[in-house]
Design a protein around this nucleic acid. Structure first.
Length: 104
DNA sequence: GGTTTGACCCGTT
DNA sequence: CAACGGGCCAAAC
């Protein structure tokens, strides 16, 4: 299917369950472009707010959050509010909270 | 219509 | 263990 890659990213992102997080590379993989992890975050950056995407559940491979300006410094609070725990380093324990997206 | 610029990931050296 | 480069899509000027 040849549709916009960004639009697919929005659909995948919308499927992230509460209390879990997904990495850019993971979403890129699910969107069919494993090497396009760069543009996942950018896609979310330009995503319309009407979609109400849980972009705060999308983090990098290290378990670190996006720059504070993106979510006005509330990303960590949002995730903690959803039950996501943080390590003492300020990172997320991906072993526990990474979204295990498995294909049907 | 070419150039620039972004919330990154992985394999090698 | 750290550093480096290649790969990727879309929108704005």
């Amino acid at each position: 299917m040849k549709d916009g890659f960004f639009r697919t990213v929005y659909q995948v992102t919308a499927c992230i369950p509460v209390g879990k997080v997904a990495t850019y590379g993971q979403i890129a993989f699910l969107a069919g472009r494993p090497k396009a992890a760069r543009f996942v975050g950018l896609a979310l950056a330009v995503a319309p707010r009407e979609l109400e995407l849980p972009a705060h559940r999308v983090i990098n491979r290290r378990g670190e959050l996006a720059p504070p300006e993106i979510f006005d410094g509330r990303q960590r609070q949002l995730l903690e509010n959803e039950g996501v725990g943080f390590l003492s380093d300020g990172r997320i324990n991906l072993k526990e909270y990474l979204w295990d997206s498995q294909f049907p």
